[in-house]
Simulated scan of single mutants.
Amino acid sequence: MRWESVYVAGTGAWLPEPVSARAAVEAGEYDPEQYEADGLLSVAVADDEVAPPDMAVHAATTALKRSGLDPATVRLLLHNYVWFQGQTMWPVASYIADHAVHTGVPAFEVKQECAAAISSLDLAARHLAGESGEAAAVITTADRFAPPLIHRWSAEAGLVYGDGGTALVLSNQGGFARVLSTAIRSDNRMEALARGAGPTPLPTQEPYDHAARFAHYMRAQGNIREATERLIAMVVGAVDDALAEAGTERSDLAWAVIPTGGRSKMQWQAEQLLGVPAERTTWEFGRRAGHLGAGDQFAALNDLAEKGSLRPGDRVLMLSAGPGTASAAVLEITATPEWSSPAAGFAPGQEVRP
């Protein structure tokens, strides 16, 4: 879908201090060979006292302040997450809306694993396109991954889970970036990759084990090549659709904002799926923050903005993908964000604690 009057007006992120990946190896939490293969330097790890919704509130408050918009113009809030949000059977999006925006804004959760954020950008753009007057939308993400149900350093080979909250403010009036296009491709058969032996009638207390779920899929389906081909078709299809709608070639891209994984995942995404060099991706940010569930894309865009890496005229591709869905968006930077500062953000080189 091509958009004419949808803009990114503000970004925000709340990220805790990074913890050294090497220290996790020394503590016996992170496999040494996996550490060498992944190339990760650190991962954002929250204290036990911080719940994900409050991370989202912090991020949304920052993004709204930076946007300069009146919170009363916000017509929609969408909250995205992967893991537990602090309470069961609870409308977490309403909590975030009440604490960060205003009590009357419609607020909803979007739950599609790691693909949710850019899919929510598409949904919010469609909502704004139907507004006749000044209107804005807030999109948030937040997750905290912790034992006993998540072992961040070993739950899934090739990535390590990080904690944090992120936010994006969209406006139909203006901003530092124009949303040129969004695209979504789905292959719902691929949910089986993440299902394992489920579904079960009640929640279990077993730790998340991606390898076990994938092994179950292989026993039941037994065709990894077919699954890989379907994944590639889904992701490349979403990217191709978004680029075509935006009138943009891969060579035009100043930045590709990609999901965070280890080095091999990053190289596969950048070189084989997207056809862009690694230095034009947000890998340098991701290898210091870890995989933030649904929040990789907004956090990395926020980092680019805070560091002053976005220039007017830049085209930026944003990609999110998960089992069953891939979403892409193309932005055109129209102005350098006013809050840009070379010293700001979760910057490369930031000291990590052991």
Score class of each variant (00 low, 15 high):
residue 131 E to T: 13
residue 288 R to Q: 11
residue 205 Q to D: 14
residue 179 V to M: 07
residue 333 I to A: 03
residue 262 G to S: 10
residue 205 Q to A: 15
residue 271 E to L: 12
residue 162 G to L: 06
residue 204 T to W: 05
residue 69 L to D: 00
residue 29 E to K: 15
residue 154 S to C: 08
residue 55 M to T: 07
residue 8 V to W: 01
residue 140 T to Q: 01
residue 183 A to K: 06
residue 153 W to C: 06
residue 258 I to N: 05
residue 58 H to F: 13
residue 348 P to E: 05
residue 154 S to N: 04
residue 277 P to Q: 10
residue 244 A to Y: 04
residue 15 L to G: 07
residue 274 L to N: 02
residue 93 A to W: 00
residue 175 G to A: 04
residue 13 A to G: 03
residue 306 E to T: 10
residue 219 R to Q: 13
residue 194 A to G: 07
residue 81 Y to Q: 09
residue 180 L to C: 10
residue 166 T to G: 07
residue 94 S to L: 06
residue 163 D to K: 04
residue 175 G to Y: 00
residue 73 T to Q: 08
residue 113 E to I: 09
residue 27 A to E: 14
residue 187 D to H: 13
residue 13 A to R: 03
residue 49 E to C: 12
residue 21 A to G: 12
residue 305 A to L: 06
residue 257 V to P: 03
residue 313 G to P: 06
residue 117 A to E: 08
residue 165 G to P: 03
residue 58 H to I: 12
residue 199 P to H: 09
residue 328 A to F: 05
residue 223 N to C: 08
residue 72 A to H: 13
residue 16 P to T: 09
residue 27 A to D: 15
residue 252 D to N: 15
residue 137 A to I: 05
residue 51 A to Y: 12
residue 326 A to S: 15
residue 295 G to T: 02
residue 32 P to E: 12
residue 263 R to D: 15
residue 133 G to K: 05
residue 206 E to M: 09
residue 242 A to V: 09
residue 262 G to P: 08
residue 180 L to M: 14
residue 252 D to G: 11
residue 276 V to T: 03
residue 191 E to D: 12
residue 281 T to Q: 09
residue 75 R to W: 00
residue 106 P to Q: 11
residue 76 L to Y: 03
residue 337 P to C: 09
residue 194 A to Q: 11
residue 103 T to N: 11
residue 46 A to K: 01
residue 9 A to G: 12
residue 294 A to R: 01
residue 251 S to N: 13
residue 119 S to C: 13
residue 162 G to A: 07
residue 222 G to C: 06
residue 255 W to I: 04
residue 63 A to W: 01
residue 278 A to Y: 08
residue 66 R to Y: 08
residue 143 D to G: 02
residue 63 A to G: 09
residue 185 R to I: 07
residue 184 I to W: 01
residue 146 A to R: 15
residue 128 L to K: 03
residue 128 L to E: 11
residue 48 D to W: 10
residue 271 E to I: 09
residue 222 G to S: 05
residue 159 L to E: 01
residue 154 S to T: 14
residue 183 A to Q: 03
residue 119 S to L: 14
residue 7 Y to S: 13
residue 270 A to H: 04
residue 247 G to A: 08
residue 184 I to R: 07
residue 6 V to D: 10
residue 329 A to R: 04
residue 44 A to S: 15
residue 72 A to F: 10
residue 342 P to F: 04
residue 132 S to Y: 01
residue 116 A to C: 14
residue 141 T to F: 02
residue 181 S to P: 03
residue 22 R to D: 09
residue 138 V to P: 00
residue 83 W to T: 14
residue 251 S to F: 04
residue 41 L to I: 11
residue 351 E to T: 11
residue 266 M to E: 14
residue 200 T to C: 11
residue 163 D to W: 00
residue 99 H to S: 13
residue 167 A to T: 02
residue 92 V to C: 06
residue 226 E to M: 11
residue 328 A to H: 06
residue 72 A to Y: 10
residue 180 L to S: 07
residue 273 L to A: 12
residue 38 D to T: 06
residue 130 G to T: 10
residue 274 L to T: 08
residue 337 P to V: 09
residue 272 Q to M: 14
residue 310 L to H: 01
residue 259 P to R: 03
residue 256 A to K: 01
residue 104 G to W: 15
residue 152 R to P: 01
residue 318 M to L: 15
residue 149 L to N: 02
residue 195 R to W: 05
residue 153 W to R: 02
residue 13 A to V: 10
residue 181 S to I: 06
residue 70 D to S: 09
residue 321 A to W: 04
residue 117 A to Y: 06
residue 331 L to V: 12
residue 92 V to F: 01
residue 210 H to N: 13
residue 297 Q to M: 09
residue 148 P to S: 03
residue 65 K to M: 07
residue 160 V to G: 01
